[in-house]
Amino acid sequence: MFKKFLICLAVVFAFNTQAAEPAVDLKDPYKMVRKVSDNTFARITNNQPLIEKDKEYLRTIVEEELMPYIDYKYAALRVLGNHVSKVRAIEDKEEKAKAIKELQRFIDVFQKYLIATYAGVFTQYTNQSVEFAPAQPFKGQDVVVVKTKIVEPGKPDIKIDFKVREDRDGNWRAYDMIAEGISLLDAKQSEMQGILRQQGIEYVSDLLEQKSQLPVQFRGEGGDE
């Protein structure tokens, strides 16, 4: 399930083959999504010889072109769900400091895991195209849904909604994606809750770190989720 979401995310953030300018307007969620799409795919296109020689370079592209516009910290905490509330409720200072350190490690590992997974997904990009719904007024809102549709000849259209949130500095970044009505964060949270309860956050962080260190490749629906 998680892999399907990332495939869709990679397609949307890499759909345009036109030359891209580096500037990204973080003050407009709609312009941000479009510009990141342009910049990411332009970088991939221009570096194809290097990528063909070493797919690990895709990690660098993802880290530099895509991740600055993904609110992975907020997403990671959302994935942990009520575990974060439990940490906040801890009264013992030493115990709380230890728990906060574990949270920080999970956030760092979650970012690396996303980078590795996005890099693998980008190895599979072909000629899909994306249609964006018209931008809507967003003044006064702190969460905006950017609606898109992935179009590929001979296959059904895939409806994708990106949730983009405004931070305290007034900058917008994506934090969740809803594919055909299913939330990426909700799906990943459901997957992790049982492991968190049984094995703890350190085990989950170790698991994600191991996955993030695997060589860059697309592992399909039966592989790395």
Results as ranks from 00 to 15, higher is better:
2 F>Y: 11
2 F>D: 09
4 K>E: 04
5 F>C: 05
7 I>F: 08
7 I>R: 10
8 C>M: 03
11 V>L: 03
16 N>F: 08
20 A>F: 00
21 E>F: 02
25 D>M: 06
25 D>R: 09
28 D>R: 08
29 P>H: 04
33 V>T: 07
34 R>W: 15
35 K>P: 03
36 V>P: 05
38 D>I: 11
40 T>W: 06
41 F>K: 10
41 F>M: 07
41 F>E: 10
41 F>V: 02
47 N>I: 11
50 L>A: 03
54 D>N: 12
57 Y>E: 13
65 E>D: 01
70 I>E: 01
73 K>N: 02
75 A>I: 03
77 L>A: 05
77 L>I: 08
80 L>V: 04
81 G>A: 07
81 G>R: 02
81 G>L: 07
81 G>M: 10
83 H>A: 01
86 K>Y: 07
92 D>N: 14
98 K>C: 09
99 A>V: 13
100 I>V: 14
100 I>N: 11
102 E>F: 00
106 F>I: 09
107 I>N: 12
111 Q>I: 08
114 L>P: 08
118 Y>R: 00
118 Y>V: 06
121 V>W: 08
122 F>Q: 10
124 Q>G: 10
129 S>G: 14
135 A>P: 02
137 P>A: 00
139 K>Q: 11
141 Q>N: 02
142 D>N: 06
144 V>H: 07
146 V>N: 05
149 K>T: 10
149 K>V: 14
150 I>S: 06
152 E>F: 00
156 P>C: 05
159 K>N: 11
160 I>T: 08
163 K>S: 06
169 D>C: 04
170 G>M: 03
174 A>Y: 01
177 M>G: 09
179 A>G: 13
186 D>L: 04
186 D>W: 00
187 A>G: 07
189 Q>Y: 05
191 E>T: 06
192 M>H: 13
197 R>M: 00
198 Q>A: 14
198 Q>V: 13
199 Q>Y: 12
202 E>I: 11
207 L>G: 13
209 E>N: 12
209 E>G: 11
209 E>F: 04
210 Q>I: 12
211 K>C: 14
211 K>T: 04
219 R>S: 08
221 E>H: 09
224 D>V: 15
